[in-house]
Design a protein around this nucleic acid. Structure first.
Lengths: 144, 144
DNA sequence: CGGTTTTTAGATATTTTTACTCTTAAATGT
DNA sequence: ACATTTAAGAGTAAAAATATCTAAAAACCG
């Protein structure tokens, strides 16, 4: 019951792109180095983020990734769900056909509430705020 | 990012024992049948629940499981964490050594808040309330 | 245009976790 | 003693996570 590594990487990647600014092209190599993400794995993650219209991938020399959304309008929830899919906390909510009475079941009402709260919290945080505060990868501004 | 099947089974098992009442001995076979839990898997789950002092296992003929806590003092969180361990939603909170600045990082403050909220919600629900309401496995009271 | 750089996209591989299952043995009521 | 019921731990199969590899495509540059 935890965020996958891919999800964590996606957050770091978008943190770095947000720090660089919307529309700024940054090479995959630079992002991978700054954010400690295996380069090939970063490709897969970027593909998903591109599908979600969060960034654009530019090929060729001087290629890389470009953030297409303004950090002030991009939330943690959007980035996370672009990678791991919509968050559900238990199976009955995700696959109601598994369970005869999920919409009236007392247990699952609790899970629904928990899910709603979790998604609200993650959706209330935008990347422009996050990059201003101290972060786990603190040396974005150091030269490589 | 979802509850494991073992966690779901544990909830069902405790729901049934709560329905039968604290101190009432119920056979493993009966629980497995009523709650649709593979019997051997139920054994493993019961072992964990016994370690957490939630139930007691009685061997021999006329053996089974006995709920040792009063349903009014047993929460969803206790049962879930007995099975899957303490809930963390991401790695940096769970293993701070992985991450240089987890206690000041803006991203992880969000996760800490989310974790706190989730655990509060799960901890605010007791089994005496849950068994009174409609449930996913609605035929507890039918004969087998 | 041709070569070089950079990334893609899909296939493959490895590791970890999940979800059971099996087997031998122990406990206990009759 | 014996039949019944569960224990405890090893073992297994399937799925998911976490990469890694490879052939090819895109695009810049001279």
């Amino acid at each position: 019951m935890r965020l996958t590594r891919a999800g964590e990487y996606a957050i770091r990647c978008i943190m770095y792109l947000s720090y660089k600014g919307k529309g700024k092209l940054v090479s995959k190599k630079e992002i991978a180095a700054k954010c400690a993400i295996p380069t090939h794995f970063l490709s897969k993650i970027a593909q998903e983020l591109q599908k979600a219209k969060i960034l654009e991938i530019k090929q060729g020399p001087r290629g890389g990734f470009v953030l297409t959304k303004d950090p002030s309008e991009l939330t943690l929830l959007e980035v996370i769900e672009a990678i791991i899919g919509e968050i559900y906390l238990n199976d009955c909510i995700a696959r109601p056909e598994m369970c005869e009475a999920s919409n009236i079941c007392a247990v699952h009402k609790v899970w629904q509430k928990a899910r709603r709260e979790l998604r609200n919290i993650l959706n209330s945080v935008t990347f422009d705020k996050l990059v201003k505060d101290p972060k786990c990868i603190p040396n974005f501004d150091k030269e490589i």
